[in-house]
Write a protein that binds this DNA or RNA. Structure first.
Lengths: 199, 199
DNA sequence: TTCGTTAGAGACGATGCGTCTCTAACGCGA
DNA sequence: TCGCGTTAGAGACGCATCGTCTCTAACGAA
């Protein structure tokens, strides 16, 4: 009888990539709620211990898997020439990113983790600050020195939308947020630079 | 030997109240993540079947338990005489309510339920509309006919705060939201009624 | 008083957890 | 080239909880 072929043993970065890939596939196949360490291990043709050696929990694994897939917003700061276009670009990026996770994944990770790594939010604030500074330099607004809560307002609203509505976040949602909330507020507290008319 | 005393069998509304009470006690004792149907049943001195007969899942049970405890915001619409005071009152009520749930309960319920009952949000919008109409009647603002996204802005922001920060929502948080975001925006899009100076 | 319902209690198989054990493949240093 | 230490791959294990099922007796309604 033929000896069954054994694939070579993977290790290091190659193995880790395969594990994260398996986690993403399992996530897409069964959803976060039904994702099990055993399922991921089976899909990766390995044992659970290999997973537990690297990540403490299901939530850690999934976060690592999604992080490894999508880049950072900091590497894709929009620069369209207008404040409105830039903010819409940021919101579109955020919407796509959260869509990649999927609502049930977000809810599940929030529930499984005691507290959330705030890096994502800080990054978002940095990007918004960059955009506002450029708008101020162009003379679109008088100053980029705004209350933190104002700076983070668009990303906060889009995040709330993703967390508490089942419907997908549309382009129109982003436009509403920018045109009906963010821009009116910014122009109210940091009106257009002198010498330039609004809108 | 003495026959062990058997308490009389409960039923109807009395039993249901006892079950919800047991669920609340169990929730406070072990938290949502560690709450089990068996634990609640044991605390209520009954069997699991009695629970499953009434609620399909852990999340259904917990929601029912908390709903039965706290009232509705619609029954406590603030009326302080100023728009600012009223909105702060609403936010304080919301903060207390969410605090009663606890962050881990909120996250857990969001994860366990496929989609959320939107009644809470609609109620919040109704209350805000009432407050804004009174402010318009007083002449504080020119009109109460605002974009839905503007009307729900304060409750949206406080909800986001509860969902994504671990720190408790303080009075100062509510004040920041009202003074730095909501009121400037409202005055920008529905400035003070003619003949009255702002602030 | 009878009869149908269901509370209270616990057994049951299934599932996934996180740990533990084992063997052999593999990388590295001598 | 060889030998040693690490760890991938595989699965067994005990435990907890799930949701279902069964049974008896208490209770309300007729």
């Amino acid at each position: 009888m033929p000896t069954p072929v054994r694939p070579p043993r993977r290790h290091g970065a190659e193995l880790e990539r395969a594990l994260l890939q398996a986690a993403r596939e399992e996530l897409a196949a069964v959803g976060y709620a039904n994702l099990t360490m055993e399922g991921v291990a089976a899909r990766a043709h390995t044992g659970k211990q290999v997973l537990y050696r690297r990540w403490h929990s299901r939530a850690d694994l999934v976060i690592a898997a999604v992080r490894a897939q999508t880049g950072s917003i900091a590497d894709h700061v929009p620069d369209t020439g207008t404040l409105r276009g830039d903010v819409l670009g940021v919101l579109a990026w955020a919407a796509r990113r959260w869509h990649d996770f999927g609502p049930d994944t977000i809810h599940g990770v929030l529930a499984d983790l005691p507290d959330l790594d705030p890096r994502t939010f800080v990054m978002m604030e940095d990007v918004m600050t960059t955009i506002l500074k450029r708008a101020a330099a162009r003379g679109e607004i008088a100053t980029a020195d705004l209350e933190p809560r104002v700076v983070t307002l668009p990303s906060t609203l889009i995040r709330h939308e993703m967390l508490l509505t089942t419907t997908p976040v549309t382009e129109q949602t982003c436009i509403d947020i920018v045109d009906h909330v963010f821009l009116p507020l910014v122009h109210a507290v940091a009106g257009p630079a002198r010498g330039r008319p609004p809108g």
